[in-house]
Computed example of a mutant assay.
Amino acid sequence: MNFPSLFSPLDAGPCHLKHRVVMAPLTRMRAARPSLAPRPLNAQYYTQRATPGGLLIAEASPVVASGFGNPGVPGIWSEAQVAGWRAVVDAVHARGGFIFLQLWHVGRVSHSSFQPGGALPVAPSAVAISTDFKAMTSDGKVAAYETPRALETAEIAGIIENFRTAARNAMDAGFDGVEIHGANGYLLEQFLQSRSNRRTDRYGGGIENRARLLLEVTQAAIDVWGANRVGVRLSPYGIANDSGEADPMPLYTHVVERLNPLGLAYLHVIEPRSSGAGRAEVNWQNVPSAMMLFRPIWKGVLIAAGGFTGEAANEAIAAGHADAVAFGRIFIANPDLPRRLQRGWPLNPYNRATFYGGEEAGYTDYPFYDEMAPA
């Protein structure tokens, strides 16, 4: 296959990538419990997928204990979690790879069973997620989403500091940079979108106010890392977790234009066809292409994600619509995905039933192509 565009070098900030096959941030729910620290199994998983000069974006990691809503996801607020991540990062670096950590606060996409003291999850406004969606509880059951508690204006500075501390912790763990999770209906996107943000203070109302928290969180990470080691992920046309803006272009054009002059490592956009946030197969027809809409606006490195094949990724890069492509489900099932794409080797099918939770099955036991080839 070869795919010359996909396998050409690229600089993302100070990271000199040897190819443009990026591993997307993928929630897998296999951290140690109750510490929520990465463990040796997690290090093995990331090491399997590391390549010299390749970029992995590690799974979304809550920045504070009140910021998560799934069992077994790794955090980045405690010393044990930092130590666990350090082992992962060291193993990836030993393979010559680069690795960023995605910083996460789920906001209303949670349940009181996860919250310290059984409190309600927090959000920009007291607007519950639709009954069409179900929450996961701490014991792995499902329940209706509760109406979250609206954050007081004075509390928002604390959320920004949670992200700042997490960025510092990621640096202590040895990561090459951090990605701000502003997508898929989680807290920062809840502030961005009018359907979930009914505030009347400086963080609500018009587009400039609704974008304020994302931009302030991004600046906090920049204060720690420098702009060229910070990325931002957006899902302008996503519908995950009851998200969605009626007219996304004015909002997301404003956000991208405000991010432009900062000098970020990259902007990471999710295509609408892959807006189910891993919970379901989504393949919209006749929807806009996020990368094609925002490529003319964004002046830096653009990573596109969502349902790409190797051929489609190569074509997108060759046409200038994206600079790199992040792969999710097929990277789960193919630890040697870059080599398979470059050499035209067949891909292992993925098993959705093993995406979340468990141990080795569906995590570290997918075979490399060389292991399948006859002697």
Rank of each mutant, 00 (worst) to 15 (best):
F3S: 09
S5N: 15
L6S: 10
F7E: 13
F7W: 03
P9L: 13
L17V: 15
L17N: 11
V22G: 03
R30L: 11
S35Q: 12
R39V: 11
P40E: 01
N42R: 12
T47A: 15
A50K: 01
P52D: 05
P52Q: 00
P52G: 10
A60T: 02
S61N: 01
V63A: 00
V64A: 14
A65I: 10
S66E: 15
G67E: 04
F68L: 11
G69S: 07
N70R: 13
P71K: 06
P74F: 00
I76M: 00
I76S: 07
E79K: 15
V88M: 02
H93G: 03
G97A: 01
F98G: 11
F98H: 14
I99W: 10
L103K: 08
G107F: 08
R108I: 06
S110Y: 08
H111I: 05
G117I: 00
I129D: 00
T131P: 09
F133G: 07
K134Q: 12
K134W: 06
S138F: 09
V142Y: 12
T147W: 04
P148Q: 11
A154F: 08
G158M: 06
N162K: 05
F163L: 03
F163V: 02
A167C: 13
M171E: 14
M171P: 01
V178K: 10
E179C: 13
I180P: 07
I180R: 00
A183Q: 06
L192D: 09
R195W: 05
R199P: 10
R199N: 10
Y203G: 08
G205H: 10
I207L: 08
A211P: 06
A211I: 08
A211K: 06
L214R: 01
L214A: 09
V217M: 10
Q219V: 08
A221C: 15
D223Q: 12
V230I: 12
V232W: 14
L234Q: 06
Y237S: 02
Y237I: 05
G238Y: 11
I239Y: 07
A240S: 15
N241D: 15
S243R: 11
A246E: 14
P248R: 09
M249R: 12
M249P: 05
T253P: 04
H254A: 09
L259P: 00
L259H: 01
L259G: 02
P261A: 03
L264I: 09
L267V: 02
E271R: 01
S274T: 02
S275K: 02
E281F: 13
N286E: 15
S289K: 07
S289I: 11
R295Y: 07
R295N: 09
G300H: 11
V301M: 01
G310H: 02
A312T: 13
N314F: 00
E315L: 12
E315G: 06
A318G: 06
G320N: 07
D323Y: 01
D323A: 01
A326L: 04
R329V: 07
I330Q: 14
A333L: 12
A333C: 12
L337Q: 01
P338I: 01
R340F: 02
R340T: 15
L341C: 09
R343G: 12
N348D: 03
P349K: 00
Y350T: 13
R352P: 01
R352H: 04
A353E: 15
F355P: 14
G357R: 05
G357T: 02
G357W: 05
A361V: 15
Y363E: 12
D365G: 03
P374D: 14
A375C: 10
